[in-house]
Nucleic acid binder design. Sequence first.
DNA 1: ATCATAGTCGTCTGGCTGACGATAAACACC
DNA 2: GGTGTTTATCGTCAGCCAGACGACTATGAT
Lengths: 248, 248
Amino acid sequence: MSPYDPSAYPSFAVTVDLVVLTVRRHSLCALTVRRGEPPFQGRWALPGGFVKADEDLADAAARELVEETGLCVHDPAAPESSGNGAHLEQLGTYGDPQRDPRMRVVSVAHLALAPDLPAPRAGGDANSARWSPVETFLDQDGEQGSLAFDHAQILGDGVERARSKIEYSSLATAFCTPEFTVGELRRVYEAVWGVALDPRNFHRKVTGTPGFLVPTGGTTTRQGGRPAQLFRAGGATLLNPPMLRPEV
Amino acid sequence: MSPYDPSAYPSFAVTVDLVVLTVRRHSLCALTVRRGEPPFQGRWALPGGFVKADEDLADAAARELVEETGLCVHDPAAPESSGNGAHLEQLGTYGDPQRDPRMRVVSVAHLALAPDLPAPRAGGDANSARWSPVETFLDQDGEQGSLAFDHAQILGDGVERARSKIEYSSLATAFCTPEFTVGELRRVYEAVWGVALDPRNFHRKVTGTPGFLVPTGGTTTRQGGRPAQLFRAGGATLLNPPMLRPEV
DNA sequence: ATCATAGTCGTCTGGCTGACGATAAACACC
DNA sequence: GGTGTTTATCGTCAGCCAGACGACTATGAT
């Protein structure tokens, strides 16, 4: 039994699925697309697709992200291209033998975090892609709003990853435009965690953490009220001490 | 192009690779096996193997773990079978098109944490499996001690996962025998992090965290010195506030 | 008896967080 | 121009917790 013998090991299809999260109107939203063909025809699903024969997993995920949203991936090597960049990381791999009724498919899920976008596009068909609050797919256990395949599970894992990761990293800035205020950043935390935070303590915390925020000098009143300082994300990626998520 | 057409998507081989970590003689060690066939014949590699056609990824990882070490997986549903149980979780998936010179292989790496074991077994051949300190494979960049394929990368990711996860979870107890002392638990942290911790502050911290440790009533002197209380792992899995890893 | 080793309990201080009062700077309206 | 509303920002205070470290305890080795 040579390892070169193709009959010596089973053959799999490999896909990437994307959990694309953003914050719109004070709530955490995920991108979903409507399936145009069986199985689960007409149901909502996470965007994704097959990995090409000579394509790296991360490249496949980045390609799908561009196809579905037009977002480029925020390349850490070239941080100045950050105009419309998103954060992209591998989330986990889902390979239950029954997860796809057609055949054996192993899906490498990725998590993408993006600032609020004007409108989703899905190959030109605007009706087939939509931002929806994540609770739409996570709350109820009824079949009504549920996603195709095991995508509700994947979405739940992605949301949980995002919720925990903004605690100890500066990842929350990935939900913001390149320049943002402390209040906008706070509303990101509030939307992702689903809690209210004290504006004064939050302001003290984030401005006091070295490397988290860099003031740009400008101010804005786009949120109303007193003008707020504008910041860009600093170089720090790990927050120590972390942001504390309030209890229960 | 029907989705049922096998020529419509590329075919992959899927493997599981294991990062099995334990603490021996005050140092964090990983299980490696010597490759008996090309490519990388004679080189050390992480244990692993092909996923079967109708096998879940976690099942494949658990099967490989038993084959290589005899360890059962610590099933959260039946915590009383904890005699020789190990912790097992998915680590990440590695799918660079060039990572295996034979063919396109996607490997789903898993991380296993085990208490110190008498001796590794690898299908009866004791010479071909070994515990080695992780620095052996992570420190130098020379080709000397390096692992086959991208296994050095995988091992590094697994070690980093373990290092960060014992901060905010009770996972360090997975490195201990079912009953252990505070000092033994502290030596686990010291070995995994590679730092020295203050025994008095550590003792205060772990005994003061509700649900982390439950006293069994017994004592032991197996470490010498004054007898120490024996504990079992409590039900808590998340530590809040976390253990703090000392700075640089 | 003495020493070495390891475990356990206390004390103190500084830093950080949560709760919350107070002030500042814009806009909307009358 | 006042007045109220909104959001941002600064300050204060008490409590908790971690790091530093002293003191004491209980075993085995010599």
